[in-house]
């Protein structure tokens, strides 16, 4: 992946974009939808178990300069990762990547938020979704190049646990005063430090400090990164 590609993925005449899904019919449909865009779509059907790194290596080996991935990949492909993690790791490896899912609302607080820190854009599949893809890819390319919009920048801020959910995907409800003090946000329990992932009700009231993009407009955009227990004031609090 060259730096130039990362800066502006659509500047090329017809950038090669990998499109990953685990269902053939969905992949064909997505290819059709994206066919109107000035992209060369390189479909990649995941049929069998394989590692995330091997998928990324293959995408890069094909000469793709960007990635669009479905989120729910585990069912048909029986891989050990979701599209959200694939997109996260791709962006981490400087391959601009966008998550493209029909189940955004179902997964955004759990398996998507788990990886949201490096998912610049999540595009909901639908009749008009294709219109959002170019801007999403541009945003991803900008982030890969180190340019995050204010709404995507994480700032250290207090995160307070107000409820714990043990059933299904373990989650906690939190409030972020610096975002919207009265709005409860659900995050995966695994976003908390490893020492605090017991899903015990004793977590309620605990304040953590971590990076949150509190300039984001919507709850769906929020990420929670590097949370750790908020410290008590130090002994030398009153000294310079």
């Amino acid at each position: 992946m060259s730096r130039a590609c990362a800066h502006n993925v659509l500047e090329l005449a017809s950038p090669r974009v990998a499109l990953v899904d685990d269902r053939e019919e969905a992949l064909i449909r997505a290819c059709d939808l994206l066919g109107d865009l000035p992209l060369t779509v390189d479909p990649m059907l995941l049929r069998e178990p394989r590692t995330l790194n091997s998928v990324l290596d293959e995408i890069l080996g094909r000469g793709c300069t960007a990635l669009i991935s479905d989120h729910r990949l585990r069912h048909h492909a029986r891989v050990g990762f979701d599209g959200a993690e694939l997109v996260y790791r791709a962006n981490e490896r400087k391959l601009p990547a966008v998550l493209y899912s029909a189940h955004v609302e179902d997964d955004e607080a759990t398996s998507i938020r788990e990886w949201r820190y490096r998912i610049p854009r999540v595009v909901q599949k639908g009749p008009h979704s294709v219109e959002a893809i170019p801007e999403a890819l541009q945003t991803a390319a900008a982030e890969v190049a180190g340019r995050r919009a204010l709404e995507r920048r994480g700032f250290l801020t207090p995160v307070r646990v107000v409820d714990v959910h043990r059933d299904g995907y373990p989650t906690v409800d939190v409030t972020v005063t610096a975002w919207k003090p009265d709005t409860v946000v659900t995050i995966p329990l695994t976003r908390l430090p490893a020492t605090h992932q017991s899903a015990s009700s004793s977590l309620i009231g605990t304040v953590f400090l971590g990076k949150v993009n509190f300039y984001a407009e919507s709850e769906a955009e929020l990420f929670f990164h590097d949370l750790e227990l908020a410290p008590d004031p130090p002994a030398d609090w009153n000294t310079e």
Partner: peptide, 21 residues
């Protein structure tokens, strides 16, 4: 809550050497 959380944030930022209090 705002005041309490601000104190926690200040403590952490001070610990990180970002500011003095």
């Amino acid at each position: 809550l705002k005041w309490h959380e601000l104190l926690g944030l200040l403590a952490r930022l001070k610990r990180d050497g970002r500011l003095r209090t």
